[in-house]
């Protein structure tokens, strides 16, 4: 059903090559042009099965860099691929766990710990999406989802708590990536894992901000929301620091605009709209 002029057979063949190239053993970022083709494939055919099959048949588990690059690719395809990708990913958790299990603890290039943490994060993300299928892979703000939670304050409270849980996990994972930088290398491969994390944390932050604002407008009992406000505030400072550190990585800022957060968290009693996307 693609309305684009495409050829399914050719697309399948190219997909295999793109997966292979995106996950090759070079210690660099997975090339965006190959990742993009994987994303576009899922939209063209409303399916990600061939993408997952393609990953499984690649001999990537023997090599830590390849495994790490595969996880970055998976993360990006989950974020920007057709929504079906997330649904179909629930059947792939076994493969993801295998990625974490296969890698050793003391690996020569130090990706072992990062791989295990990345798998943990992706699994947490998938659990969230299974529970709340109305969110897309990048948590892009849509008015109706916010309102839905607001009508039922308990539900809204839970959604925000869950989003904050995910945000905390992003935060500890990004810290780990920074801690694994090496002075000798250019760290491009590690830095490229920060790209989807910046985007995702920003989507979550925007969502939480606008949803908390909407809830403050609706409720008369703002005291009940105090725990969320406190947590929001501490996440704001963590995120600000994360973005600040990212903005010093030239390689990263050449790929995406890193958001710049204000010194202090935005006022939640405010009527303002969600912060603008970078």
């Amino acid at each position: 059903y693609p309305t684009r002029p495409v050829d399914k057979e050719k697309a399948e063949q190219e997909l295999v090559i793109n997966i292979k190239k995106a996950t090759n053993p070079d210690e660099t970022a997975p090339k965006q042009k190959h990742v993009r083709k994987c994303i576009v494939y899922t939209w063209d055919y409303h399916s990600s099965i061939s993408f997952w099959t393609g990953l499984r048949v690649q001999p990537i588990l023997a090599d830590e860099v390849q495994t790490f690059k595969a996880l970055i690719t998976v993360h990006k395809v989950l974020q920007e691929g057709h929504p079906i990708t997330i649904k179909e990913a629930h059947g792939q958790t076994g493969w993801l766990e295998t990625c974490a299990r296969t890698v050793g603890h003391e690996t020569p290039r130090g990706y072992g710990t990062l791989i295990r943490a990345y798998v943990q994060y992706i699994l947490a993300k998938l659990r969230f999406h299974r529970l709340r299928p109305e969110f897309n892979g990048l948590f892009e703000y849509e008015e109706y989802v916010t309102l839905k939670g607001v009508d039922d304050p308990n539900e809204g409270y839970e959604i925000i708590s869950d989003l904050m849980g995910l945000q905390d996990q992003i935060d500890s994972f990004q810290r780990m990536i920074f801690a694994h930088f090496r002075h000798s290398a250019n760290n491009e491969c590690r830095i490229s894992a920060l790209v989807p994390l910046v985007k995702e944390s920003w989507g979550i932050y925007r969502f939480i901000t606008s949803m908390l604002r909407a809830m403050h407008r609706r409720t008369t009992d703002t005291d009940a929301l105090e725990p969320l406000r406190t947590r929001f505030s501490s996440q704001h400072y963590n995120l600000r620091k994360f973005y600040y550190e990212c903005s010093n990585l030239k390689y990263l800022t050449s790929l995406i605009n890193v958001p710049k957060l204000g010194q202090d968290p935005p006022n939640l009693m405010d009527k303002g709209a969600a912060p603008d996307l970078p």
Partner: peptide, 16 residues
Amino acid sequence: YFRDNLYIIKTLKEFQ
């Protein structure tokens, strides 16, 4: 057409 195929444009945001 391009609303339908927005992802073609959207994924160019990381063109390198």
